[in-house]
Nucleic acid binder design. Structure first.
Length: 643
RNA sequence: GCUGUUGUAGCUCAGGGGUAGAGCACUUCCUUGGUAAGGAAGAGGUCGGCAGUUCAAUUCUGCUCAACAGCUCCA
């Protein structure tokens, strides 16, 4: 009896029934077999030792495959557990999955105090066990036997896990002296693991529920070669240098102050210059796209948020209300701009011919975020949204939605964000009471989003239960320097708020109609976007964004007057920030400091330049560009500074 | 909010039961120097805050505030 195995390149080979993926690999080449970690059999990742009994599609997985890596890391988690059990007998185990980079294991150390000082010992033990090349052996067990095993061992977390598992589908994996409840698959043996680094230790609730006991989560990463671990650690160091919190301080962009309050960023002149450059850029693009800019106050009466629905949903979690001394009215710091914009819409009667109406505001909002959640500029308590609300007729919804999608793509491409992900967030179909509005409204809104993204051929992931309480949304996410994903842009369809505020327009039939509303932000918030921009550029901003565009460096104080004259000329014509370094320092020092400050142009002036009425242009990172007249520089600069 | 780690000069950090140290930055002076750190001197700190133990606390203990990592949450 033979079976036909189809490989990814389309070739078909015949093998005896019951052959394993490893045997297939061996038949192709010994080198391949040495690197096989697991296999993808008809779309499912399986052990390379699993016998194949029918014609199948087979892909051999190595370290170069995502699934191969995650199998490797998952097996490493088992090895970590084995090492822990051997070093600290009595340790109880929660779950130990592979994650994007590496893996973790949640463990209960009981009385043992485990901290960073133990990392080295643990790493050594893991490598020691790895060298034994213990095979990962799979074994099916009955639920009763499984319960019996962990009862004897006294591992309550595994028993808890077992409760949700179906009898007959339970498997154990054993390597060396360690047996774990696991569905697999695993790498052939522990010998593949050649390098390990315990990265981090943190608390994590059992099953992610804060009512449960907090376990110790050990984050670690392993590699098949020491060199790869070393490279990875270097990469991490590089990423740390791009951290916006570090660069923000170094480049003098923004600060936090305990006395001002946590999560409340202070923008220094250079940071604000950067912010304004971005705001001007967006305003221009938005005006072109038919948006009108509006402005609204930072507080609003409680009644406004009762009408909008925000109070019922988030009133308790917001900042405490501000009370007037006489009228005893309650005001809230605004958490969103939409209620105010709805009021602007309602202020004047609209005709169907007026729609779509697009109000944009760089509106500063305040939200009470849990303090453990605050992080640099990416999650703060006071921030400025590049917010806009589009009020349109239902028949315009899809077109308007598409226009916003196109606008997001345009803006991100100009800023060099190419690696963003898009996610559609829909209502949780099993928990509809969490949301406002009728089923019909939701169906219409969700359909509009799905169709629009399909029309643009966008690769999106869809998540149920992640929608805003008033409507479904399309989010744009990018990664920061250390790989965390953050939502930036968002487009949300809302039938509810026009209803709540009784917004109308007069149709061609001379009757009142209800507009649809689109909430949208391209950057999300200026703060978060700038954080990600800093991390993505490493602080090397393009000329048009740079807070300081050029610095004039006189060779000595004999040329200060000429330097000032040049500075005045440039500022007058270019209308951009130009600095002047009049310190009593040598030119080498001035250049070094300007390079570190990441100022795009350094203009050196000395005796030669003064006599010839020129400047010597030096570009950051690139070095000397030679002498130019001021006019020549202005022409070159003006061309480059265009977005 | 929860768990853990951390908090010393403007910044980065060392130290440690007997009232503090480095580098950079800052101030003054010397130097007038042509492409990534010229030299000297000086000033600067209630060792996050509050309490406790002690003859003595920046160091030990407790509480508190903040930052960091993760968990939970997320408009």
């Amino acid at each position: 009896m033979t079976i036909k195995i189809t490989l990814p390149d389309g070739s078909v080979r015949e093998y005896p029934k019951g052959s394993t993926s490893m045997e297939v690999a061996l038949s192709i080449s010994e080198g391949l077999a040495r690197n096989v970690l697991a296999a993808n059999l008809n779309g499912t990742t399986v052990d390379s030792s699993l016998p194949i009994h029918a014609d199948s599609k087979l892909e051999l997985l190595t370290w170069n495959d995502t699934d191969g890596k995650s199998t490797f890391w998952h097996s490493s988690a088992h090895l970590l557990a084995e090492a822990l059990e051997s070093l600290y007998p009595g340790t109880k185990f929660g779950i130990g999955p592979a994650i994007e980079t590496g893996f973790y294991y949640d463990v209960d150390f009981g009385e043992v105090e485990f901290n960073q000082d133990h990392f080295k010992k643990l790493e050594d033990k893991i490598l020691e066990l790895a060298r034994l090349k213990s095979e990962f052996k799979r074994q099916s067990v009955s639920k009763l036997d499984a319960i019996d095993y962990f009862n004897t061992k006294g591992d309550e977390y595994k028993l808890d896990l077992l409760q949700n598992l179906e009898d007959g589908k339970i498997t154990f994996y054993t390597q060396g002296n360690f047996t774990d409840l696991c569905r697999g698959p695993h790498i052939p043996n522990t010998g593949f693991i050649k390098a390990v680094k315990i990265m981090n230790i943190a608390g994590a609730y059992w099953r992610g529920d804060e009512k449960n006991k907090m376990l110790t989560r050990l984050y670690a990463v392993t590699f098949p070669k020491q060199k790869e671990l070393d490279d990875y650690l270097v990469l991490l160091e590089e990423a740390k240098k791009r951290d916006h919190r570090k660069l923000g301080k170094e480049l003098d962009l923004f600060y936090f102050d305990e006395e001002v309050g946590m999560g409340l960023p202070l923008w220094a002149p250079k940071g604000e210059a950067l912010r304004q450059n971005l705001i001007e850029f967006l305003k221009k693009i938005q005006r072109k796209a038919g948006y009108q800019h509006v402005a609204s106050p930072h507080i609003g009466k409680k009644e406004l948020y009762i009408t909008s629905g925000h109070y019922a949903k988030y009133g308790q979690d917001a900042y405490q209300p501000i009370r007037t001394p006489d009228e005893n009215e309650e005001f809230f710091l605004k958490p969103m701009n939409c209620p105010h914009h709805c009021k602007i819409y309602a202020a004047k009667l609209k005709s169907y011919k007026d729609l779509p109406v697009k109000y944009a505001e760089f509106g500063t909002v305040y939200r009470y975020e849990q303090h453990g959640e605050l992080h640099g500029l990416t999650r703060v308590r006071g921030f400025t949204q590049d917010d806009a609300h589009i009020y349109c007729r239902p028949d315009q919804l899809k077109e308007e939605f598409l226009k916003v999608v196109d606008l997001v793509n345009l803006v991100y491409s100009k800023l060099g964000f190419s690696e963003f992900k898009t996610q559609i967030s829909l209502r949780d179909p099993n928990n509809k009471e969490k949301y406002l509005g009728t089923d019909q409204m939701w169906d219409l809104a969700e359909k509009a989003i799905v169709e629009a993204t399909q029309e643009r051929g966008m690769k999106t992931t869809t998540k149920e239960g992640e929608a805003a309480f008033y409507g479904p949304k399309l989010d744009f996410m990018v990664r920061d320097a250390i790989g965390r994903k953050w939502q930036i842009g968002t487009i949300q369809v809302d039938y509810m708020m026009p209803e709540n505020f009784d917004l109308t327009y007069i149709g061609s039939d001379n009757q009142k109609h209800r507009p649809v509303m689109i909430h949208r932000a391209l950057f999300g918030s200026m703060e978060r976007f700038i954080a990600l921009l800093i991390e993505n550029t490493g602080g090397q901003f393009p000329l048009w964004l740079a807070p300081v565009k050029a610095i004039i460096l006189p060779i000595s104080d004999k040329f200060d007057d000429y330097a000032k004259k040049v500075a005045d000329q440039l500022s007058d014509i270019l209308d951009v920030p130009i600095e002047l370094d009049l310190r009593n320092e040598k030119i080498g020092r001035k250049i070094r400091d300007a390079e570190i400050s990441k100022i795009p142009y350094m203009l050196v002036v000395g005796e030669k330049e003064q006599n010839e009425e020129t400047i010597q242009v030096r570009k950051k990172h690139e070095g000397d560009l030679g002498s130019q007249t001021v006019d020549e520089f202005i022409a070159m600069f003006s061309e480059e500074v265009k977005v």
